[in-house]
């Protein structure tokens, strides 16, 4: 069995778990952190799929810019998601 395929399966499963956590979490700040973890795992997946150009733009966007934008927006609204 190819090691790359095993690692792809492992990291995409981790991404799936954090997607579930991000969708169900009521506290928006924690949801953003879960979502950032999921994006970081996706950066690893893109590296395993041999797309280094995408990895280089995905890491700053997923770890820095995207959570920061969402946190700025959450700062202007309510932290806990209501029904």
């Amino acid at each position: 069995m190819d090691v790359t395929l095993l690692l792809l399966a492992l990291f995409s499963t981790v991404g799936l778990v954090f997607t579930y956590l991000a969708v169900t979490e009521r506290d928006l700040v924690r949801a953003v952190v879960y979502s950032a973890v999921q994006s970081s795992v996706y950066a690893v997946l893109l590296y395993l799929l041999r797309a280094p150009d995408i990895v280089l733009v995905y890491i700053p966007v997923s770890v820095g810019l995207y959570p920061a934008t969402l946190l700025f927006l959450i700062g202007k609204t309510e932290r806990v998601d209501g029904e």
């Binding site: 280094p52 150009d53 990895v55 280089l56 733009v57 700053p60 966007v61 810019l65 920061a68």
Partner: peptide, 21 residues
Amino acid sequence: TPGGGFQAGATLAVVSVLLAV
């Protein structure tokens, strides 16, 4: 090498987030 203008720009933009936060 892999990379380019947009990748580098996104990397530098992280500095602005660090400064603000």
